[in-house]
């Protein structure tokens, strides 16, 4: 899905952030926070498509790529669900409402939400990978009747790591078959334990009318994509969202190259069929 992200039309420097203000901050898990940002500059809050990401800048500390996790219907804000893993992302997680951040983007390709009517949808998320897929889920909820079967399969490390858990009942009520599995659970957990692919046997996959969207750790996506292929899905109907080191997001820094693809520009969302040969290699 080649979708143009934000490209400066006036020849200005795409490396220069725009000022945004935090309008809402919600703690999701012990390590994860969702920030809602609105433009604090002359340019209105930018539009995005599910799957795209921005570069978020914390004053003096640096910049990190973060997927957009909110609804495309909210034109007044951009939501980012951030896991505090490094100095910058930890600082972002701690930034309070009202504070300013620098934002570049949105950048990159989008999930193939638009497409033929009545397709079955299989959303497979691992860990923080649910964040960019939540934007897809919101779009599907808005026009649920345009899709056939719709599954949301969620894998997480533990119960405490589940993202957006309070929203699952609403997703289910709206006709998204939402299922959860954990890597590790205590005796009180009533749900499934196992990797996200362990949910597949009980999901009816109809090849040729299903599009699958996978986001999570690379190894998880590789296993899940392979399992879906075994269920008869074409590698071109399976989409994954890739992650690589990224400093510019506009194809200048060269770091996010994955084979011939710049993940920032040609990705992050790419059809599995295009990556299949690379995913079996180490250290690409």
């Amino acid at each position: 899905m080649a979708v143009e992200g934000f490209v400066p039309q006036d020849g200005s420097d795409p490396m220069v952030p725009e000022p945004y203000r935090i309008v809402e901050r919600r703690r999701e898990t012990s390590h994860t926070v969702t920030l809602a940002l609105s433009s604090a500059g002359e340019v209105p809050t930018r539009a995005f498509q599910p799957g795209q990401f921005s570069m978020l800048y914390a004053f003096g500390l640096g910049e990190v790529p973060i997927s957009i996790s909110g609804s495309t219907a909210r034109r007044d804000r951009l939501e980012y669900t951030i896991r505090g893993v490094g100095a910058v992302s930890k600082a972002l997680c701690e930034t309070p409402v009202g504070a300013m951040l620098g934002v570049r983007g949105p950048f990159g390709t989008a999930w193939p939400v638009a497409g033929p009517e009545n397709r079955d949808l299989l959303i497979v998320a691992g860990g923080i990978g649910l964040a960019p897929l939540r934007s897809v889920i919101y779009q599907v909820l808005e026009r649920r009747s345009h899709f056939g079967n719709a599954f949301v399969l969620i894998g997480a490390r533990t119960e405490a790591d589940l993202l957006f858990r309070d929203e699952y009942p609403r997703w289910r009520a709206a006709g998204l078959d939402t299922r959860v599995t954990l890597d590790a659970a205590s005796g009180s957990w009533k749900g499934s334990v196992g990797v996200v692919t362990s949910l597949f046997p009980n999901v009816e996959v109809r090849p040729n009318r299903t599009v699958a969207m996978l986001c999570g750790p690379e190894v998880m996506m590789r296993f899940a994509a392979q399992a879906l292929r075994d269920k008869g899905l074409s590698p071109h109907d399976i989409y994954v969202s890739m992650e690589r080191n990224m400093k510019c997001a506009v194809g200048f820094c060269g770091r996010c190259q994955y084979g011939a693809d710049f993940i920032c520009r040609d990705g992050p969302v790419l059809p599995f069929g295009r990556l299949e040969d690379r995913l079996v290699l180490q250290e690409v």
């Binding site: 893993v85 691992g126 860990g127 790591d161 590790a184 196992g194 362990s198 999570g216």
Partner: peptide, 15 residues
């Protein structure tokens, strides 16, 4: 497969 994959702790320990 399932156990080996979980052994990788793919979702990672943020700290």
């Amino acid at each position: 497969d399932d156990v080996q994959l979980r052994l990788l702790d793919v979702y990672g320990e943020p700290d």
